[in-house]
Simulated assay, not measured.
Amino acid sequence: MKFVIAREALLKPLNLVAGVVERRQTLAILANVQLVLDGQELSLTGTDLEVELIGRVELTTPPESEGEITVPARKLVDICKSLPDGSDIEFNLDENRLILKSGRSRFTLSTLPAADFPSVEQSDNGQSFSLKQGDIKRLIEKTAFAMAQQDVRYYLNGMLWEVSEGQLR
C-alpha cells in the first residue's frame, strides 16, 4: 500500500470517522481506523461496535500499490492536523509499520491487520425509507427525552422505530 494524498482531502473524512472511535476501548483494534485503498478510492472506517462510519475520498494521483491496514485513529488525526496547509502526505506500508512522509516530516505508526477489524454486518431483512432531515430531527427531539442514558437494561437506552406503509412511528 503506497499512495500520496493532500492533507485537506484526508482531514475531513478522517475527523468524521475518528469521531466514532472510542478513547477507552476494550479491544485494541477499536482505537484504530481501517484504511482500504482500492483503485483510486481510499475508504476510512471507524467503529465502536455499535456504530460504524465510513468515509471515502478519491485520490488525485494513481497509487503505486493497493491494500488495507488499520492504524491508531487519534495519532493519525493529530499528525494530519500538525502538518501545514496545502501539504501532501505520502503513505507507505512497510511490513507492520505505516510510514507517513510530508516535507521534512516523517512518522511511523504501528498497525494491526485489517482482517481483525470488526465490521457491522449488513442484514438482508432490514427495512429502508426516505424522510426529510427536518422531519426525522423533529421526531427524535420529541422522543429523545424518554431514553435512558446508562441503564443496565440496555434496551431502554434507545428508541423503537415502527415502520409501516407510509408511516414511521
Rank of each mutant, 00 (worst) to 15 (best):
L98R: 01
Q40D: 15
Q127P: 07
A146Q: 11
L100W: 05
E90M: 04
I99Y: 04
R106H: 00
I89V: 11
F117I: 02
E121T: 11
F129T: 04
T111N: 13
T143Q: 09
L131N: 10
V17F: 00
R169P: 07
K75W: 10
P113S: 14
S82Q: 07
R56F: 11
L139V: 06
A115L: 12
A144T: 11
S65W: 11
F3V: 00
G166F: 01
L83I: 10
A28H: 11
L98G: 01
V120C: 08
L109P: 06
K132W: 13
K2E: 15
D124I: 12
L59F: 07
R24V: 12
K81E: 10
R23S: 15
R153G: 02
L100Y: 02
P13A: 05
P72W: 05
G103R: 09
T61D: 08
L11M: 12
R153E: 08
D88A: 14
E64N: 10
T70W: 03
R24I: 04
D38A: 15
Q122A: 15
A146Y: 04
P84K: 01
L112M: 13
L83D: 11
L131S: 15
A146P: 10
Q133R: 15
T70E: 02
V163C: 03
E162N: 05
A28L: 14
Q122C: 13
E141Q: 09
T26L: 09
Q149F: 08
G46N: 09
D85H: 06
L93S: 02
L49W: 07
L49Q: 12
A9H: 06
L112N: 04
P113L: 13
